[in-house]
């Protein structure tokens, strides 16, 4: 049981987390624009997240909190 919380206001949609997730569970939410004008990252398959924190490790904006 694990999850990530993306601060969608802080996220700049750089895709570094998308690229880093070993299970390919993250994608940019194309239907959402945050106040900065970016598509924020989202965990698309929460049930599969193992909380490895690879996404958070690569996030340049420390926008991701990981719980496990």
């Amino acid at each position: 049981m694990a999850k990530i919380i993306v601060d969608e206001l802080v996220c700049k949609g750089c895709s570094m987390c998308v690229n880093a997730c070993p299970l390919g569970l993250i994608a940019l939410a194309q239907e959402v624009l945050n106040s900065k004008g970016y598509h924020p990252a989202r965990l698309m398959h929460p049930e599969k997240c193992v909380g490895c924190a690879a996404c958070a490790t690569m996030c340049p904006d420390t926008a991701i909190t990981v719980e496990r």
């Binding site: 049981m1 802080v10 958070a56 420390t62 909190t65 990981v66």
Partner: peptide, 17 residues
């Protein structure tokens, strides 16, 4: 669940430019 990764204390809340 416990937090295993979060923003360090020594960073302020200011969003990075």
């Amino acid at each position: 669940m416990a937090i295993v990764f979060e923003k360090p204390h020594a960073l302020t809340d200011a969003p990075l430019h």
